[in-house]
Design a binder for these strands. Structure first.
Lengths: 347, 347
DNA sequence: CTGTTAGCGCGTTCAC
DNA sequence: GTGAACGCGCTAACAG
């Protein structure tokens, strides 16, 4: 397979390479006839320009990178769709990159920035805290989506933008909702995580809601999943362990819908009725929460809005229409069928 | 931010660029001391080699590409994890690329092949049929995973490999399972798709099972979702329409678990008990099928095995240990709680 | 409107 | 063991 290059195409057309280049890149100053002829030959030969070479030369490509942390997570799928549409609408190209759990997303961004000519970087998910100096090394605008503003102690917040819900407040909200329905012994399923993160913010919200209403925090009611909060199996196992421990509780609040669905299944297997015997609440408002049986009471994150706003923001920053900002959207308390008012005669 | 290059590093170290290059790429013929000094400077400066330039020059990188069709689909997540592990274990790099529904995955592969130095390409999902000449243009070994062997009419099958279940046979199997439990009026939820695809194979299996048992195919029982078979909302809407139509049926078989879960919810809302009034079967055996209420009866695809075998195969082909092959794994009929034997007194 | 030419940053010869 | 020089394929000046 003789690698066919732009020179070869130029030869076959009897033109210079730059003319071919112009044809490929839709430059205006080219004879339509010439262009047509060139495109013809390109099609015939099946020539495909080498992207590496292009990236190397190109001064500037209208290109955005989106780095998504955790491919296993269906959470981001609806966001990505929106982002793709919007970016295309603006005539930009999109580099979508998945970052493994063990990788440092900023590190990956740094590398990508060298390789492509990026105009901006969007992070979807990922850890909430990054080394300040690394973020500073990024030379194009950065927006974190679904992550709040406390990304690094050492940054003033002017080096990047964020678009997200206020995880602590939303978590407070749903916990208070449970309390308002008479629940006092509210178990909490989360991830054991020392580093500041979304998960930790949600825990804070849970604890402060209890505190506000004079309910003591019972450490036995706080249960940790093994590593990942986006697998049903973890939700199942942890809920089962909770039940088996004999601990009394009237509600279980899980930091993610996925965990909550796993818990639903565990309760079903244990012959515990939801919401008859126990109420279950989730967080995220994923598609799943609307289709499981019973439907989950949860906090819906406005992912569409977050996505759209993220895009708007990054383009505004690119176009120097504004500086870095931190935008917070309210989440929505979605009342499902998995939570109910408590009777006095409960366990 | 002055873009720092290999020349700059060389200058600061007082060595030639090629020495720096050798240090970066772990070449053997370099003084350990020199190397150490260079790596030190690289760390200090935060220098990151430009990948485009590397790809342009590099004769050969141990690199594999995996093209995944449809990012919305959680189906592939477990496969990707396995693939990543295995590839890393063999010391290869991995390029993971998501292909949009409207993109032609082979086209993308062609482009990628020009850009990077690939040694092999793996396709996860995607349409079952491709233009023969395009596949032939690919100069490195190609393996299709989860797609059967009828990828193109014009190919002998020696130009590529496949690793998958026999979708038609598995579909036949689960349909026959329903029939064996006394079901005769078995509705089928699928995607309207003219082009040969997995979906069509499953339909064939459904129809031939009915035929074998002397059950007429009732076109009113075959229901088409709007475009995508991996959204619960589609399963919900289509099941609801089926119920509303007043058509009589005792079982519903959906071409994907995701659709089936949507259907479960629709039946719950309609006050139809599963499996009391209606039995529901899915296909795929995703995590979801084990955690929904009731658990789904479905066909589990052995994704781990498929992934592992795909990797083994592509490396064997790269190493010339074997030629192209077509491997079929049996699926597993998983008995859940969503299907039951029919009474004679049913609707 | 078009052809010629100079690099983009790096890996790879080939001398030393 | 190391450095100088060449060129990968392409785009962007520039000159015509």
């Amino acid at each position: 397979m003789a690698e066919i290059t732009i020179v070869e195409i130029a030869k076959r057309c009897g033109v210079g390479v730059s003319t071919v280049s112009r044809a490929i890149n839709n430059h205006s100053d080219i004879n339509p006839e010439t262009k047509k002829r060139i495109m013809e030959v390109i099609r015939e030969t099946g020539y495909i320009p080498n992207n590496s070479a292009r990236n190397l030369k190109r001064i500037d490509a209208k290109c955005l990178a989106v780095l998504v942390k955790g491919i296993t997570n269906p959470f981001f799928a609806p966001m990505i769709e929106v982002v793709e549409q919007e970016v295309e609408k603006r005539g930009y190209a999109l580099v979508l990159r998945h970052v493994e759990a063990y990788e440092d997303e900023v590190e990956v961004a740094l590398e990508l920035e060298k390789e492509k000519r990026l105009r901006g970087i969007i992070f979807l998910g990922g850890s909430a805290r990054h080394a300040a100096d690394k973020i500073k090394q990024l030379s194009v605008p950065v927006v974190f989506a679904t992550i709040g503003s406390d990304i690094s102690d050492d940054l003033t917040g002017n080096e990047y933008s964020t678009v997200s819900v206020d995880d602590e407040r939303e978590s407070f909200k749903i916990t208070e909702h449970l309390i308002s329905l008479g629940h006092k012994r509210i178990a909490f399923m989360t991830e054991a995580n020392d580093t500041p993160s979304i998960v930790q913010l949600r825990r804070k919200g849970y604890e402060s809601a209890l505190a506000k209403h004079g309910i003591d925090i019972d450490r036995n009611l706080i249960r940790y999943v093994d590593q990942r909060i986006y697998t049903m199996a973890n939700g199942y196992d942890t809920a089962k362990a909770l039940v088996d421990s004999g601990e009394k509780f009237t509600a279980l609040y899980c930091v993610s819908d996925v965990l909550a669905v796993g818990a639903l299944r565990a309760f079903a297997d244990a012959g515990i009725s939801v919401p008859g015997d126990v109420s279950v609440a989730g967080f995220d408002g994923q598609e799943l929460s609307r289709f499981c049986v019973p439907r989950l009471t949860t906090i819906r994150q406005p992912l569409q809005q977050i996505s759209r706003e993220t895009i708007r923001l990054i383009f505004d920053i690119i176009d120097k229409k504004c500086g870095h900002t931190h935008i917070t959207f309210p989440g929505e308390l979605v009342i499902g069928e998995s939570v109910r008012k408590i009777d006095d005669s409960s366990l």
